[in-house]
């Protein structure tokens, strides 16, 4: 198994955090992982992205020009990264912020109303966890329980009061594609 993801959005949407959660969970499940941020001169409001690789084998380059999966939180990032997704790959887009219908040529596309659900839960900043929940439900890369347990390790301690609402967001995203009884 080898997955190469780009996770993209604007600064402040928590795309780096999504990647860390995924990489941490992969590590906990005994997989090889790398997490590579874009660390260029990007500011809050600009686009930000990270590359995550998860594999059963040793990972050579942590960079990726053509991911097999794109998790994308806003339109500028979609425009930038969708053309790079490999044929046969998949894209999950935040349909709350990218309103027109998106279709992909030769890629599988899933619309995730991440901000809509996050707002229902009372905090737009957890849209990232809705997206992550949806992704792992649909592709079963790592277990939801491993992701849930990673929150305490990846969130800085001063934000541990937000664990419950993040768990709720993961669950809502996850249940978009899988009935929770399964897990």
């Amino acid at each position: 198994m080898k997955k190469e993801l780009i996770i993209a959005g604007f600064g402040g949407q928590g795309v780096m955090f999504m990647g860390k959660m995924l990489a941490h969970s992969g590590m906990k499940e005994g997989l090889e992982v790398t997490w590579m941020p874009s660390y260029g001169p990007e500011m809050r409001g600009g686009t930000a992205h990270c590359t995550v690789k998860i594999s059963t084998e040793r990972i050579a380059s942590p960079f990726c020009s053509h991911p097999d999966t794109l998790l994308v939180m806003n339109r500028p990032s979609l425009e930038k990264f969708q053309p790079r997704v490999r044929a046969g790959g998949s894209m999950y887009y935040n349909s709350s912020m990218i309103e027109q219908e998106i279709s992909g040529q030769e890629i599988d596309v899933a619309a995730v109303p991440a901000n809509k659900i996050a707002e229902e839960l009372g905090n737009p900043r957890i849209a990232n966890m809705v997206m992550l929940g949806a992704y792992i439900a649909r592709e079963e890369i790592v277990d939801l329980m491993t992701i849930n347990n990673s929150l305490a390790a990846v969130l800085p301690e001063e934000k541990h009061n937000l664990i419950d609402i993040n768990l709720e967001a993961l669950k809502r995203g996850y249940s978009l594609y899988t009935s929770l009884e399964k897990s």
């Binding site: 860390k20 990489a23 590590m27 090889e32 992982v33 790398t34 997490w35 590579m36 941020p37 660390y39 942590p62 960079f63």
Partner: peptide
């Protein structure tokens, strides 16, 4: 370089 410094790995 920035890859070694900025990257996260186990």
């Amino acid at each position: 370089d920035g890859m070694i410094g900025q990257m996260m790995e186990p």
